[in-house]
Simulated assay, not measured.
Amino acid sequence: MTAQLTETWGDIAARALEGRKPSRDEALQILRADDDAVPALVAACYEVRREYFGRQVQLYYLKNAKSGLCPEDCGYCSQAIDSSADISKYTMLNEAKLMEGARAAAASNARTYCIVASGRGPSNREVDHVANTVTKIKDELGLHVCCCLGILKPEQALKLKAAGVDRINHNLNTSRRFTPEIVTTHSYDDRLDTLRIAREAGMELCSGMIVGMGESDEDLVDVAFELRELDVTSIPINFLIPIDGATIESSTELTPRDCLRALCLFRLTNPRSELRIAGGREVHLRSLQAMSLYVANSMFVSDYLTTPGQAAQEDFKIIDDLGFELVYPEGKPGDASEATGRQACETSCRA
């Protein structure tokens, strides 16, 4: 993997700090950098990360509010209609279960609680249910709330905003070119439309991709540039977890250095956006998870939709060992309550 770089990584990072994105050729050079160049590339990205996010790390807690039973055929997903994966299947969780998840999020020191539901899009009844629950979460816990409910109608987005939902997650997942290779039941433009609807309703945008589905380097660059044009607040980068029974059962052979290069691409193209190491980080980044936080500034501290994450205590250890600082939920100081929160998480954050 060799690339001829006409400028230093520091030069590209300096331009990012001035608000200028890399050229397309430079973006491809990031993805094709020699392994020997990765430490210098990460160091350059850290200057950008530090400028906009300091040494802070934001934690996210994900709750799979509705599992399986999905009419979509996304090839990467264990919940897809044509998946034979052995997963739990259930309709929308009741208020008590969603509140239980929110309390576990607070106990794990997560600032943001993510409510995720399978399906093409929510019914009006499901939106009402989520909205009512979010109001109670805000009143009791003050958590930042992100919802990922699929394709939204304008009136549904307005109802979620009125209830206190801060952010909508709707991942592009891959490029416009590669989208038909992984899903046929919705289009790339369907995803862009939902992001537009969420923004028009006044909510922040969270959108990212899945790396390792067989896409090209050019596809990764397309997504990075698209997200910059969309000016999304938060970018989760997932690394495909092979799941028996899903249409795409094995991922592109990713090394930890490949994952770091992908994160560096998104940091240098989207310097002001929160960058999150998401699903698959434990599988593909492995021992370099700590190194990735010199590029990214947030992470999930929970299981994912149908696959387990690592123990929360391991995540806390990574952050502590780096000397980084957690961003706590509003009203929760990072002093004596931290130990209590971590102890509570040992028993509750897998709820």
Rank of each mutant, 00 (worst) to 15 (best):
Glu181Ala: 12
Glu181Val: 13
Val183Met: 01
Thr184Asn: 13
Ser187Thr: 15
Tyr188Asp: 08
Tyr188Ser: 04
Tyr188Trp: 15
Asp189Asn: 12
Asp190Cys: 12
Asp190Lys: 06
Arg191Trp: 01
Leu192Asp: 14
Leu192Ile: 14
Leu192Asn: 10
Asp193Lys: 14
Thr194Gly: 06
Thr194Ile: 15
Ala198Cys: 14
Ala198Arg: 03
Arg199Thr: 09
Arg199Gln: 13
Glu200Tyr: 00
Gly202Arg: 06
Met203Asp: 06
Met203Cys: 07
Glu204Pro: 02
Leu205Val: 09
Ile210Gln: 12
Ile210Asp: 00
Val211Glu: 00
Gly212Cys: 02
Glu215Thr: 04
Glu215Lys: 00
Glu215His: 10
Ser216Phe: 04
Glu218Ile: 08
Glu218Asn: 06
Asp219Pro: 06
Asp219Leu: 06
Val221Met: 11
Val223Tyr: 03
Ala224Leu: 02
Ala224Gln: 02
Ala224Ser: 14
Phe225Asp: 08
Glu226Thr: 15
Arg228Tyr: 15
Arg228Ile: 02
Leu230Cys: 11
Leu230Met: 11
Leu230Gln: 08
Asp231Leu: 13
Val232Gln: 04
Thr233Gln: 11
Thr233Asp: 07
Ser234Arg: 11
Ile235Arg: 04
Ile235His: 01
Ile235Tyr: 08
Ile235Gln: 02
Asn238Gln: 05
Phe239Ala: 00
Leu240Phe: 07
